[in-house]
Structures are given as C-alpha cells and as structure tokens.
C-alpha cells in the first residue's frame, strides 16, 4: 500500500539531510585539538590532544576517541550519551555543558577546545569530580508526603494541568550544571548553608506536587538557605533540560517564605486560623 497523501513530503528522501540548517556552521572535518584537564585532587594541568573529527560529533565522542587511542586512563563519567542521565557534565571552553549534547559544529575548532571538570566540586581525577555532597543534600530535604487517597481503591485523582506545572521540575536529570555555575557555591563555597538551584527545584517539585502536604518553607528559610540566591539566573541559562529554574521554581519558593515570615497580615491570618508559623 502506497501512501498517496504522504508522497509529496518524501519526494526526495535524502533532501532533509543534505540541506545545512541555517543556524549551524558547516560540519567539521579533519583534525581538532582538545586541551583536557588532567590531574587529581592535588594538582593538574591542561594537556593537548589532537584527534580527527567528523560529521555529527559531540565533545564526548572526541573524549572517547582520545581515551581509546591516546590516553586509556583518561577519567570521564558518562552513561546514556543522549542527554538523559546527566553524567557527563563538564566545562567546555569555560561553559558548563553536557559533553554528549555539545556538538563540535557549534564550537570554533580553529582554536583548541578546552575541556575541564566542574569547578564547584572537588576534583577526583581528570574530568571526574566528587559530587557526593549533592546526594547528602537531597536526603536533608523532607520527603514526599501524600494526602490520604481520594478513592476507596487507594488511588488519587489529579488534573493534567496540575501535573504539568510540576513535570517541568521533574524533568531534571541531576547533571548539577546549575550547581556548578551558581556563584554561591562556586565562588563563595557556601555548601554548608545553601542547597543550590538543583535542590531548590527539587523542593519546588515537592512543594507544588498536587498530593504533597508537607511544609518545607521553614526549612527552606533556615536550613536550606534560600535567601542566599540573588536571582542572577545563571542556573537557568545552563540547564540542559531548559527548566526555568529561577522564575518557576526559586522565585515562587521565595514568595512562600516571604508570605510566611514577613507578611504581617498573613501572620495575623495564620495566628487566627491557629496554624503555627514555626
């Protein structure tokens, strides 16, 4: 059966591949140089490697090629190679990026490409950093606490629109690029006082979850240090999942903190409705 309706679209099946998209530079060919940070917890330096490049390659491909051909012990984390697991975070030409989603065609290959580990975390070896702090932080946030089920069979009813609002936050792949770029963590090293954008997104996902009844607002103010964020939106700029971290997650949480602690009318209402603010 031939699909008559569809034929016009496919008159030249190869056409879509041949046309260079307007917003990209031509695909690279030939050789390119990568200056990769090699070292450990105590010291390190950029080491230059030259390797061949071809159509469609991403930075992680180049790293793998160098690893297989020139530096078997080059340490790098990666898993899915599809932007879904958030393992291969690094700084490419100084920008926090997933190496698997950074096309060589988007880089200037006439100059060496620098690839460094995330700088907000302690280096372990080469491109691998110690991100264990993030796992500890997550455990410090009050877990999901659902309201009682809506139906006798133990299930809940939720509107798609309520689910949609939170699904943006639940897209997070925990690559920690937002943590890497956040100056509170990166420059001021306030890891003991501020949980960082990733975990503000996590807290927002819980706070705005249609079923959740826990109150994380006091902890956000005191323990999690939401006040340290001064809304520079660097985190939003680097998020590979395009989560609007600052506007959709952090600012609404800040508003909740303000409402609970600094709004006198709100306080009176709460006192009279016998709801504790603590």
């Amino acid at each position: 059966m031939v699909s008559e309706v569809l034929k016009p679209d496919l008159a030249e099946p190869g056409r879509v591949q041949e046309k260079a998209p307007p917003d990209r530079k031509p695909e690279p060919t030939g050789r390119a140089t990568f200056k990769i940070w090699r070292g450990d917890a105590t010291r390190g330096e950029l080491v230059a490697y030259t390797t061949h490049v071809s159509e469609g390659m991403v930075v992680l491909d180049a790293i793998h090629q160098i690893q297989a051909e020139q530096a078997n012990d080059l340490a790098v984390r990666w898993n899915c190679k599809a932007g879904k697991c958030g393992s291969c975070s690094a700084e490419v030409n100084g920008m926090p990026k997933l190496m698997c989603m950074t096309r060589l065609s988007d880089l200037d290959l006439t100059k060496p490409v620098t690839v460094e580990p995330m700088r907000a975390f302690p280096p372990l070896r080469d491109l691998v950093t110690d991100v264990s702090w993030n796992f500890e932080v997550k455990r410090s946030i009050a877990p999901f606490t659902p309201r009682p089920p809506d139906a006798p069979d133990g299930t809940w009813r939720m509107a798609q629109s309520d689910v949609d609002r939170v699904q943006e936050f639940r897209k997070c792949i925990e690559c920690y690029l937002c943590q890497d770029v956040c100056h509170v963590l990166r420059d001021h090293q306030m890891h003991d006082r501020f949980i960082g954008p990733r975990f503000l997104v996590y807290a927002a996902a819980l706070e705005m979850h249609p079923l959740d009844v826990a109150d994380r607002v006091p902890a956000l103010k005191e323990k999690h240090g939401i006040g340290y964020c001064n809304i520079t939106k660097c985190c939003t700029a680097v998020c590979p999942e395009n989560i609007t971290i600052t506007d959709n997650a952090i600012i609404p949480l800040k508003e909740r903190v303000v409402d609970e602690y600094f709004d006198p009318i709100g306080r009176l209402v709460k006192i009279f409705s016998r709801k504790s603010v603590r």
Binding site: S3, L6, K7, L10, P13, S54, D61, A82
Partner: peptide, 27 residues
Amino acid sequence: PPSVRGLLVTEGVRGEGGILLNREGRR
C-alpha cells in the same frame, strides 16, 4: 549522524501515530 547511531527512538512515536516508510514512500 554516526556518533548517535543506535540511540533509541521510542516506540511511543509509533504509539502516537508515527508510520514507517521506505524510500519510495511506501508504508
């Protein structure tokens, strides 16, 4: 391109109505 060869394309595409065609446009 070659660097992504093998990367999964979900069956969900077909579940949502995606169709398979050969170069002649035949389903």
